[in-house]
């Protein structure tokens, strides 16, 4: 029995300490990811809490061969989509309407990243920052591994293009 399966069973049995340990280990990571999807720390905090509640209620949906973290992030992604849906069709995630503080961007990379669309931001974040494997990304996003590969490639190309063009503009203005 792997660690994730054992932990899932303990959470299922209602062991508060098991859930607490999992929360402490993952809450900050999940909140950081949700800021990328939702744009504001407050929204990220709200959705993060709702995600953990859903996670606990839906433990029977966890596949024993999967990763518990991937399962959690998958729920978070759906909760974030629901959060946007409740705000109506005119308010969908994009680089423009999320409130990432471009003016405060500490680097060209951060600025370029803020200009990607929400799907690309979340995919790159999960891969580069959270270190999720291709199989885990496929589980989180509900897409085949081959599609993960091509989408990651497209996101990196886009990020690189924006980053390079920003560098040219900066050099010209200098």
């Amino acid at each position: 029995m792997n660690d994730d399966h054992e932990l899932a069973e303990r959470v299922c049995r209602g062991e508060t300490r098991a859930f607490e340990a999992f929360y402490r280990e993952n809450a900050a990571h999940l909140q950081g990811f949700l800021v990328q999807l939702l744009g504001t720390p407050q929204a990220a905090e709200d959705v993060m809490q709702e995600t953990f509640l859903q996670f606990r209620r839906r433990m029977n949906g966890f596949h024993p061969d999967g990763s518990l973290r991937a399962y959690l992030f998958g729920i978070a992604r759906k909760q974030a989509a629901e959060w946007w849906r409740q705000r109506g069709p005119n308010l969908q995630p994009s680089s423009e309407d999320t409130e990432r503080p471009k003016a405060e961007a500490a680097s060209l990379v951060e600025d370029a990243f803020a200009n990607l669309n929400a799907d690309q931001r979340s995919l790159l974040w999960l891969r580069e920052v959270e270190g999720q494997s291709y199989a885990q990304l496929a589980e989180i996003l509900g897409i085949p591994v081959g599609t993960v590969r091509s989408r990651l490639s497209a996101a990196r190309q886009e990020l690189r293009n924006i980053w390079r063009s920003d560098r040219v503009v900066k050099k010209e203005n200098a």
Binding site: A27, A28, Q31, E45, M48, V109, E110, E128, V129
Partner: peptide, 22 residues
Amino acid sequence: DYAILGAELRRTARLHSPETVP
């Protein structure tokens, strides 16, 4: 470039990591 961008994203994430969670 991909390696540089990845490293920079991880650095940014550490800078903006939430200090506290509920």
